[in-house]
Design a protein around this nucleic acid. Structure first.
Lengths: 207, 207
DNA sequence: GCAAGTTTTAATCGGATGATTAAAATCATT
DNA sequence: AATGATTTTAATCATCCGATTAAAACTTGC
């Protein structure tokens, strides 16, 4: 978990916290070091004293967010004790819970992946090694059993799309649907239950 | 349709074209007027000569993109001649086709909706009046017939999520799945067929 | 082909912004 | 309390970038 705002935290941590807030709200380019100074209530020069440059600070914040985004997921997908359906359910729960407390993350990640894909992809360990995960074995078994012809990528895309997109598009959806912040959160709680069911339906629909 | 690059187009149009390219690639904040000048091969001062400011130029480009994004959709959803299933199918087809030729639009819209939601929402006519559309009547009929309890917002979210998100996240998904541009387009063509079926499944699943 | 308007150019301005600096304030050690 | 190290501050620098300007290069109408 990312550190929460506290009373007795170091200056360095205060800067990182403020930077995370502002970077996530406005993206890298639109953020001025002065914004971070203001947000943290600290002197401008401290940012360059503790972190050498704006870019360096951003990289550090970025890395922590990516780690948060990826945390537990690999273990979850590699657990031999849970079924495939359970894994999907756990994954959706994990992400919706995480996004409910950090709703700006999807935008942030999409933003940086889009504006500088090469840097972004190299920064986070996008090195594959997905084939070894236990869920892949389970998927192959399911394909044999039920004669499913659907590409697994579609299922992955659908799961992530339905889970993450409502957070990325929250400002638009909220405006269009006239939902309060609370109602929107309630809606996401509902989706925590529903999305795994919808995915199961897609999987059980043999060809 | 947005104007395509041509041989005999006015300077004004050249600037707008270049601006669209760069704004969509980098977002408003990260774009310098000098980038637009370079992209168009024109003198820097022409941007301020034809459009008074960077912001003004952005607003114009933005408006055109939003219009493209919203074009035909209202008519489609208000057509009394098509069934609800057909409407969803047409909607998905329309958007995937549009996004295949303009894959940066989702990121662009999400970006601006997030960084300055108030400006964005006021700019595009987010004024509701959704209730009058024919599809709403059809939805209500379906609810009566099949005793569906699912919130319509979930279905809307799912349709848009599954359609749009794979484009917004394309750089990440492409990297993770090692798919070429062609294969990725092929995947989207498949989704054109599949998404309406998945949505139908969700709808037919009574409670 | 010349005058009036229009478009394009190179040069420059002024404010914003990332970064630095040198001095002041605070803290730690004895 | 005195000394030295660390942290914080206000002021400043250098560069970037949106915008302007004045003159040059075109175009149009006669």
């Amino acid at each position: 978990m990312l550190p929460s705002s506290d009373s007795t935290i170091s200056t360095e941590e205060k800067i990182k916290l403020a930077a995370r807030t502002v970077f996530m709200r406005k993206g890298y380019a639109a953020t001025r070091t002065r914004d971070i100074a203001e947000e943290s209530g600290l002197n401008l020069a401290l940012i360059n004293y503790y972190f050498r440059s704006k870019e360096n600070l951003f990289n550090i914040v970025m890395l922590e967010i990516c780690q948060l985004f990826a945390s537990n997921v690999k273990e979850l997908l590699n657990n031999p004790e849970t079924t495939l359906d359970q894994k999907i359910e756990q994954l959706v729960h994990h992400y919706i819970d995480m996004l409910l407390s950090n709703p700006s993350i999807p935008f942030f990640i999409l933003n940086e992946a889009h504006t500088s894909p090469d840097i972004f992809l190299s920064r986070i360990g996008m090195d594959g090694e997905m084939e070894e995960l236990y869920i892949v074995k389970q998927w192959k078994e399911l394909v044999n059993e039920k004669e499913i012809t659907i590409q697994p990528l579609h299922i992955i895309l659908n799961t992530i799309s339905m889970t993450v997109f409502p957070f990325a598009a929250a400002p638009i959806v909220r405006a269009k649907s006239n939902l309060s912040t609370d109602s929107y959160q309630q809606l996401m709680e509902e989706r925590k239950i529903m999305i795994p069911k919808w995915i199961s339906m897609m999987l059980s629909n043999k060809k």
